[in-house]
Simulated scan of single mutants.
Amino acid sequence: MPRPRLTRVNQAVPQTVGPLGRALAAAFTEGDFLSDGLAHSVSSDTAQQDKWTAARLEYKTAQAILELEAWVAIPADAPFPDDEVFPGAVMLLAPPGVEAGDGNAKNAWYAAYKEATPAETQKIYDQLLTELADLENAAVPGGAKATYHIDFIGTPPVARKQGLASALLRHVLDRADRDKVIATLVTQTAGNEAYYTRFGFKTQLQRQLTVNGETGTIWYMVYTPGTQPSYPKDEEEEEDDDDAEAQAFVARTGTVGHDHGHDHDHSHGGGCC
C-alpha cells in the first residue's frame, strides 16, 4: 500500500487552522477525560462545550503553526483538501529547544479561545497544566524542552485505519533517531498506551488525575533513539517531487514541503493540553 503523504503547515490562515482544529476535536471524543472535564466546566450545554473545544484546539493549532510545528497526513491517493472537512491525521509537535511563548497572543484564534473560556474553566485549566508540568518533570528531569514532544496527534473517525497517525509518528521517530534525541508524549487511554508501545515508546510514569470531577489515568511515554521496531521494506516508495496537487495546496494554504511516511494501522488521539 502506498505510504501516506505528509506535509508541514507553515501559515496560520482560516483554510488551515479551522479544518485542522476541527479534525483534532473530532479525534478527541473517546476516553479523553481531560477534555471532557474542561468542557463540562464551560457549560452544561453540549453545543457550548463543542464550541469551546473547537476554539481551544484551533488556538493550539495556530500556536503550533506559528511557533512550533504542525504536520498533516492524508492517504497517498487523496487530493490535498482545502475545504471544511479534513480527511487526514494532524500532529502538533514541539521540536527540541523550541517552546511556545506569547508571540501569538493577539491572533484571532487566541482571542476567540479567551472569549469562550469562563474564569472558572481557566482556573481549572491552569491547575491541570501545573499538574502535567509536575508529571513531566518527574518523568523527564528538566522537562520535555530538549525532546521531540508530541503535543497532539489525532485522526478523526472518517480517516482512521489508513496508517495516517502511524506515518506522523514514524516521521518524528526518524528525526529522533537521526538527532539522537528522545521523543515524548502523554496519552490518556490504555489502548493508546499499548499502541505507542508498538513504536518503541515506553511508559516512564503514570498517574491518576481528576479534572472537574472527571478522573482518569495519564501515561507519560518516552522513546529512546534507535529503538524503533523494524517495518517491511515494501512499505517504502520514492518521494514524488513533482506533486502538482501538493504544490497547488501549498499555493492555496501556505503550507510548505511534503514528505512520505510509513503505512500502519490506527488511530484515535493522543497528547493533551
Rank of each mutant, 00 (worst) to 15 (best):
F199S: 03
Q204T: 03
P156A: 11
L168P: 14
K145H: 15
A26V: 00
K233T: 04
V172K: 15
A159G: 00
A194W: 02
I218D: 09
Q48N: 08
A119E: 15
D179H: 15
P232Q: 01
R178C: 06
L68D: 02
Q208D: 14
E245R: 07
P75D: 00
P225L: 06
N107D: 06
L209A: 09
D83R: 13
A248S: 13
I65W: 07
E131Y: 13
V140N: 06
S41T: 12
M91S: 07
S35V: 14
D126E: 14
W109F: 12
T29P: 00
G154C: 01
D177T: 04
W71R: 02
P118G: 02
P2C: 01
L6A: 03
L6T: 02
P141M: 03
E67A: 04
N107V: 02
N10E: 10
D242N: 13
E115A: 15
L38C: 06
D242L: 06
A54S: 13
G213T: 11
V186K: 14
H258W: 15
R56A: 02
D240M: 04
G226M: 13
V98D: 08
G226Q: 13
P118E: 00
K123E: 15
P2H: 10
H262G: 05
K106I: 03
P118D: 00
A25Q: 04
W52A: 09
D77N: 10
H260P: 00
R3V: 00
A251M: 07
M1W: 14
T184W: 11
H260Y: 14
L169H: 01
D234T: 06
D32E: 14
P156N: 13
H266C: 03
Y195H: 04
A139D: 04
E193N: 09
Y148Q: 08
V42C: 10
G191Q: 08
K123W: 10
A12F: 07
A94C: 03
I218H: 06
T29I: 06
V98R: 15
M1K: 09
Y110H: 15
G271P: 09
V85T: 15
G163I: 00
P156Q: 12
T255N: 02
P141A: 05
L57M: 06
K114A: 03
S35E: 13
L209V: 01
A76E: 11
G101K: 08
V98I: 09
R175F: 01
H149E: 05
C273V: 07
A105F: 01
L135P: 00
I150S: 10
R198Y: 08
W71C: 04
W109A: 08
D177C: 05
A133P: 01
G21W: 06
I150V: 14
L129D: 12
W71H: 04
A194Q: 09
G213P: 07
A39F: 05
I182K: 15
T215L: 11
G101T: 08
T187I: 01
P19T: 08
T130I: 15
G31N: 05
P75W: 00
Q122S: 09
Y223A: 01
K123V: 02
M91I: 01
T253S: 11
D83S: 14
K123F: 09
Q228K: 15
I182P: 12
T210A: 05
E245N: 13
H264A: 12
P232G: 09
K123Y: 10
S230Q: 11
T255Y: 02
D32M: 12
